[in-house]
Design a protein around this nucleic acid. Structure first.
Length: 411
DNA sequence: TCTGGGGTCCTAGGACCC
DNA sequence: TCTGGGGTCCTAGGACCC
């Protein structure tokens, strides 16, 4: 158990205070690898790597040898020859994730999932029924351990950003609280990479102008920061470095794209093989769309070549769909148009993602100008499909296209 | 170190509309 | 015939996150 900046009980005040540290960031430790160690007692205490070609997750024993997530598999084996390497068992991880999220949702109604293994929980307003955020976090950790058999680290702070940083610092198997009075003391000595959105490229940019800590970034004017990394990133970095983060914990967000991809190795492939792979991917994605009751308008096909350069090509349909046929056609058209490039450079990965997702019940039809008289047909279509006549405002979608008519069933 | 699979958000240019 | 500003959408690419 790692130490906490502050781990007292109820030392703040017993009232609900807007300024109190009441956002939790809960993050499972080395998630995939921990599930493997949980399910295989012989793996416990040993270095475990999940994933072959690339490291998806490494146990803390493997991390101790220098193995990192996203590292090439051969490099990882060189660093850690004794490591147990296992193939991912996605189903097991999904199950574990569900079980943990049930505990989250049982803790507070305000849960915002970030990925399979982490979430924000807002526990403001739970003092009376559940105690202080520290009490809640302590119980949450114990429950996850007892019920699911996994270690989880929790950061507690006044803002999302600080809570997230705190859980990172508190790993593994820790609880770390940032008291409101000591936020800058905690934040400013951290390296710039601790800022959300600062990866490899931005780190280098910042280092080049002599900025190494969050405090250094805070000393820079917003104008200079914007000039350095662009408008959006500049404003964001400025805010975070000055400890301004007004984002709320929000529930009920839906994803805006859904996709699948497949790495195919360097061996030469025929056009037929590539096409078969893409057809399979289109099938998978459209199936998942339908299962989730979602439809999308933009078809994005992703390519990666032998030299590891990448390209994407997209096509936006006039109407959102989850049907296989139109998405298949758009995908295959894109593949055909890329044929020459694929011949020349060699393909190592192909993927599809459907973006601009909407809920399936928000259907939209596009009527060409010439067919506007066919509005009656559109009404029939809606009535057949949804048993409603409700058609909302028609939108002109372009000179050559006509009007998009969103038809919303009144449910 | 030669490389997975799932995502998000931002930028910038061009087309188009008013 | 020449000309402006504001806005949205589409496309391609890049950075980043887990």
């Amino acid at each position: 158990m790692s130490s906490a900046v502050h781990e007292g009980r109820g030392t703040e005040t017993s009232r609900v205070e807007p300024s109190s540290a009441s956002i939790l960031h809960a993050d499972l430790d080395a998630f995939y690898a921990s599930v493997e160690q949980r399910d295989n007692p012989s793996f416990r205490g040993k270095p475990v790597i999940v994933g072959g070609g690339v490291v998806l997750a490494a146990s803390y024993e493997a991390k101790a040898c220098g193995v990192k997530t996203a590292m090439g598999g051969s490099a990882a084996r060189r660093l850690c020859p004794d490591a147990i390497v296992v193939s991912p068992r996605m189903h097991a991880y999904t199950e574990a994730s569900k079980a943990v999220f049930e505990i989250f949702n049982d803790t507070t109604p305000l849960v915002e999932g970030i990925s399979v293994d982490e979430a924000f929980l807002d526990v403001r307003g739970l003092w009376r029924i559940a105690g202080s955020p520290i009490d809640i976090a302590t119980r949450l950790r114990a429950r996850v351990k007892a019920d699911v058999g996994l270690n989880i680290t929790v950061g507690v702070a006044r803002t999302k950003f600080l809570a997230k940083v705190a859980s990172g610092v508190g790993k593994p198997d820790g609880l770390l609280v940032v008291p409101p009075a000591r936020e800058l003391e905690f934040l400013h000595p951290l390296p710039v990479q601790a800022l959300w959105g600062v990866g490899k490229v931005t780190t280098e940019k910042l280092h080049r102008v002599g900025l190494f800590t969050v405090g250094d970034v805070a000393d820079l004017s917003e104008e200079r920061l914007v000039a350095l990394v662009g408008a959006a990133a500049g404003h964001k970095l400025h805010s975070l470095a000055h400890n301004i983060d007004r984002r709320r914990v929000t529930t009920g967000k839906r994803r805006s794209s859904m996709g699948s991809q497949r790495a195919m190795g360097r061996r030469p492939k025929t056009h037929a093989e590539i096409e078969a792979e893409l057809r399979g991917i289109v099938d998978r994605v459209t199936r998942r769309l339908r299962a989730a009751d979602r439809v999308g308008r933009t078809v994005v096909v992703r390519f990666r070549f032998d030299d590891y350069t990448r390209a994407t090509r997209s096509h936006t349909l006039t109407e959102a769909t989850a049907d296989t046929a139109p998405i298949m056609k758009a995908s295959l058209d894109i593949l055909d148009a890329m044929e020459a490039t694929i011949e020349r450079k060699g393909l190592t990965l192909i993927g599809l993602s459907v973006a601009n997702l909407q809920n399936a019940d928000a259907v939209q039809m596009t009527l060409p100008f010439a067919d506007l008289s066919a509005l009656d047909q559109a009404v029939d279509h809606v009535r057949d499909k949804f048993g409603t006549n409700s058609i909302s405002r028609a939108v002109n979608v372009g000179k050559d296209q006509g009007y998009a008519v969103p038809m919303l069933p009144d449910r």
